[in-house]
Simulated assay, not measured.
Amino acid sequence: MAAIKKIGVIGAGRMGSGIAHVCALGGFAVHLSDIDETRLKHALQSIEKDLARQADKVKISENDGKAALARIATGAGLDGFKDCDLVIEAATEDEEIKKAILKALCPNLKKSALIATNTSSISITRLAAATYRPEKFVGLHFMNPVPVMALVEMIRGAAMKLGAHHPMGPLELADFIGLDTCLAIMNTLRQGFDDPKYQPCPLLAEHVKAGRFGRKSGRGFYNYT
């Protein structure tokens, strides 16, 4: 899988602007798009204020904030996504609107590009089916407010196996290690660092509670019986 250098974000509302903020601060070039150019303008203003606030609190340097803002480009159409390695859809939480956006997006992407949705309630598999590349589609659920909450939930659809092009994806690797071991590690990190980004995924805890520890028990994220 090619390295991700440029990230596209569809939707310049609170979530979309927050995602653009953290991606740019992480060093990625970002293209933020929305059908409403006024909303795009307000999003950039909001990001600039949030970056300045982080600098005032000494969470980032002033130069880091300016550099992050400079990495963000905006546009109302889909042309800006042609060279993106990953595009994150963060439009309104309406399934039909999201499907229409994703269907229109696909012809504007390079073949290797990944697509993600920030939905918190709509089936990832149904949204993936609206694209021409369901095997490259994943859910990335950012927590709100994005610049403050260092936690992202990843959800795969039925057509995607995480870690494509690698001998073993992360879920298969977790099964190999043992889900009970993974849970214990995450709990230790969460308590030791007091950082919510190490909070174990609820699904992981559910599997362990049900005795599904991975390969050693015959079933985990995958079935080995």
Rank of each mutant, 00 (worst) to 15 (best):
L69R: 08
K98A: 01
K82G: 01
A73N: 11
A91R: 01
K98R: 02
C84Y: 11
G80F: 03
D83G: 07
S61L: 06
G77Y: 04
F81Q: 05
K99F: 00
D64Q: 15
E62M: 12
E96N: 15
D83K: 10
I60W: 07
D64Y: 06
R71I: 08
I60Y: 01
D94R: 14
D94G: 05
K82P: 05
L78N: 01
K99W: 05
D83V: 05
A70E: 12
T92W: 00
I97G: 03
C84E: 04
G80A: 10
G77N: 14
S61K: 10
K66D: 14
T74L: 00
I97L: 15
G80P: 07
C84K: 04
N63Q: 15
A91Q: 08
F81C: 12
T92M: 10
C84N: 12
D64I: 06
G75P: 06
K66Y: 09
N63R: 14
K82F: 00
R71G: 00
D85V: 09
L69I: 11
A67W: 02
E95I: 05
S61F: 08
D64E: 15
S61Y: 02
N63G: 10
D83C: 04
E96F: 03
L69S: 12
A70W: 04
D83A: 03
G65T: 11
E95Q: 12
L69A: 12
I88M: 09
L69Y: 10
G77C: 04
D64W: 03
T92Y: 08
N63Y: 04
